[in-house]
Amino acid sequence: MDRIPILKLGRALLVTIQVDMHDRLATALEDDLTNQIVKHGAHGVLIDISALEIVDSFIGRTLDTIAAVSRVLDAETVVVGMRPAVAITLVELGLSLAGVKTALNVERGMALLRQRDDQPEQEDGASAG
């Protein structure tokens, strides 16, 4: 079965989705990412969706789940490169992606993750922003 490659980028993992994501691929990505986060002790996950022509409720739910699982493993997920037409459609569809951080591109996504790493430890575990 084909899989989406996961690259290590400093303390983060980078996933570039290049194909039209079918359901099994999405589910495999969820599993692979979880394993890789633990293996590398990654602090962040960048998911580049600039090649995706649509995000429907299934893909949206997958992104949400990845973000939620990553968070439990102390890694932040940032979805980068969403096309404007996809963003417009997502909102009308009713998907909020509330648990997912977004950034315009990989560079800005990395900056966001670095910001988080630079923040001092907080007593109550809640991070600002």
């Binding site: 022509e53 299934f58 417009i88 569809l93």
Partner: peptide, 26 residues
């Protein structure tokens, strides 16, 4: 997508009907 483009729909309208089709097909 191919048909919507052929029908002359713009990018946003194409994205909307493809997304709707994906939901209904599923």
């Amino acid at each position: 997508r191919a048909r919507a483009a052929e029908a002359g729909l713009g990018l946003v309208d194409q994205t909307k009907i493809i997304t709707a089709a994906s939901e209904l097909a599923r």
